[in-house]
Nucleic acid binder design. Structure first.
Length: 488
RNA sequence: GACCCCAUCGUCUAGCAGGCCUAGGACACCGGCCUUUCACGUCGGCGACACGGGUUCAAAUCCCGUUGGGGUCGCCA
């Protein structure tokens, strides 16, 4: 790809900035990998920053899960919330003073303004624009407020702070992978920078922190391209030098849309629990949008670092192909010595720790030791084959199509269960049965069959807890899919 | 819809300072070999430069357009 190479800052500092609002995402690992590799290539620093400015959705559990998953995959950061560093804190919720004073500064510079519009007004504005087939966007009503008046209201009224985007001209920036990108300012909205709860939006926080943390290159996903001009304007307003921009292609589903959990397993926990080796996953990710050259597809992160160059990055959005990942994973497994394989198995699910969770559930149900392994196979499996139990999946008097719908909806209902334990799972399932008018007995058997591929298994919620969230959800989804496509 | 990005086999990709390309590799798929079976391994097959204009002696490679795909348009990131 043609790379318009810009100046190379003396110290390379890059970051991965996940938002702790869900499960550890494979896209986070993908972007982290390229940040990491680029940093190591140039002897720079790779940092981890938690972007928890969404108070309603951020959780500590999610943050912990993300750090655990990133550690599992083997990427290590030089600075971050868990390891500290000279530019901390590395959690945005602990840096709110910076954003507030930055917002005040921006207002003083005339680059931002307080906005007193209510969410209700914004909503009706949007509705009106939609009805009139106008492009959506804030109408800038508060931008023309008398500044003394605005100043006075600011003290007493709830408000946001918006970016005063220039009304004319263009904003351009250089993307290291694509060259010049240009947006005409008139098409860019006056983004909210500071929410009414006093927390910053991504746009403000990311610019302020990247500057304060001396980030040299912002390497992020392509979906950010359209908001980059806002960031460029912010750097300009602050009088700061902007970092270099690199937008990586977006990982895709088989249908080419942006990778999503409805169409693909996206949680790193799924890959871990399904028996993928972290180095194989990383290697696979390294083959998406990047080619090391010389027809080599199997390479370590160290080799990727050695051979890395932005010129080797391609821009077509790569489809995440599980079959190819599986093949690569097989190559890694075959290369292991038996001793190493044993160790891998131990750190996977053949551990005393995991066995201690499984055994209590099966203990009273076996009469000979040899029955254990066959009876518990679904605790040690990734995807299950539901074909033999397709008939058992559908409760008496229900049909395949509606059962498929029920299971698919249940997957969504289970999405926000965190932590994943039986106390949390059970009420969600009971309420769900209630909400769809199914007897719990009907729903629970369907879940049991979907998750274990059998009709007899240990108590349902214990089973779900031990199998794990991602595997449960994947199996429910695939059972639903199988029912949906099965021709009765 | 507006704006922006992208475009080689079904998928991941090499090639893109134009000729070495009758387009290479890998996954998947199909077939042979190896083998008591399966897997591995190995050999072979199938299979792509989206389309149309230019530029050039010569274009997958450069330019323009069309088409297609994607992203964004939130007090989410």
């Amino acid at each position: 790809m043609s790379a318009t190479t810009s100046r190379m800052p003396s110290e390379i500092r890059v970051r991965i900035a996940p938002s702790p609002t869900g499960d550890p995402h494979v896209g986070t690992a993908y972007i982290a990998l390229f940040n990491y590799v680029f940093a190591k290539k140039h002897g720079g620093k790779f940092l981890l920053r938690i972007e928890d400015t969404d108070q309603t959705r951020s959780t500590l559990d999610s943050e912990a899960a993300i750090l655990r998953a990133l550690h599992w995959i083997g990427l290590t950061w030089d600075e971050g919330p868990d390891v500290g560093g000279p530019y901390g804190p590395y959690r945005q919720s602990e840096r709110t003073d910076h954003y507030r004073s930055a917002a005040v500064d921006l207002i003083a510079r005339g680059a931002a303004y307080p906005c007193f519009c209510t969410p209700e007004r914004l909503e009706s504005l949007k509705a009106a624009q939609r009805a009139a087939k106008q492009p959506p966007g804030y109408d800038r009503r508060c931008r023309s407020l008398d500044s003394a008046e605005a100043q006075a209201r600011r003290a007493s009224e709830p408000h946001t702070v918006r970016l005063a985007m220039p009304r004319e001209g263009v904003t351009r920036f250089v993307d290291e992978l694509r060259g010049d990108v240009e947006f005409s300012n008139a098409t860019i909205d006056d983004q909210v920078l500071l929410k009414s709860d006093g927390f910053p939006t991504y746009h403000l926080a990311n610019v302020v922190d990247d500057h304060l943390m001396k980030i040299s290159h912002v390497i992020r996903a392509e979906e950010w391209i359209s908001s980059t001009p806002k960031h460029v304007q912010l750097y300009r307003a602050f009088g700061w030098e902007a970092p270099l921009w690199v937008h990586m292609p977006l990982l895709r589903n088989a249908d080419k849309s942006k990778i999503s959990k409805r169409k693909n397993p996206v949680s790193l926990d799924y890959y871990r629990d399904s028996g993928f080796l972290p180095e194989a996953l990383l290697n696979f990710l390294g083959n998406l949008g990047f080619s090391i050259g010389d027809n080599r597809e199997k390479f370590t992160v160290a080799e990727m670092v050695a051979g890395f160059d932005w010129k080797k990055v391609s821009l077509g959005g790569p489809v995440f192909d599980l079959a190819k990942l599986t093949d690569l994973n097989g190559q890694y497994i075959r290369e292991l010595s038996v001793e190493e394989l044993l160790n891998r198995l131990h750190s996977w699910r053949l551990s005393d720790e995991y066995l201690r969770r499984v055994l209590p559930l099966e203990h009273q149900r076996i009469e000979r030791l040899d029955q254990l392994i066959p009876a518990t196979s679904f605790f040690f499996s990734g995807d299950l084959d539901h074909r033999p139990v397709l008939g058992e999946l559908v409760p008496q008097g229900r049909d395949g199509a509606s059962t498929a719908k029920v299971l698919a909806d249940l997957v969504e209902a289970l999405d926000n269960v965190r932590p994943w334990d039986k106390q949390a799972i059970e009420p969600v399932c009971r309420n769900f049965a209630d909400s769809i008018g199914w007897k719990t007995k009907e729903l629970f058997m369907a879940i049991r069959v979907a998750v274990t591929a059998r009709t007899a298994a240990p108590p349902l919620f214990d089973t779900l807890e031990v199998v794990g969230k991602e595997l449960c959800r994947r199996r429910l989804r695939s059972a639903a899919e199988m029912l949906r496509t099965a021709t009765p």
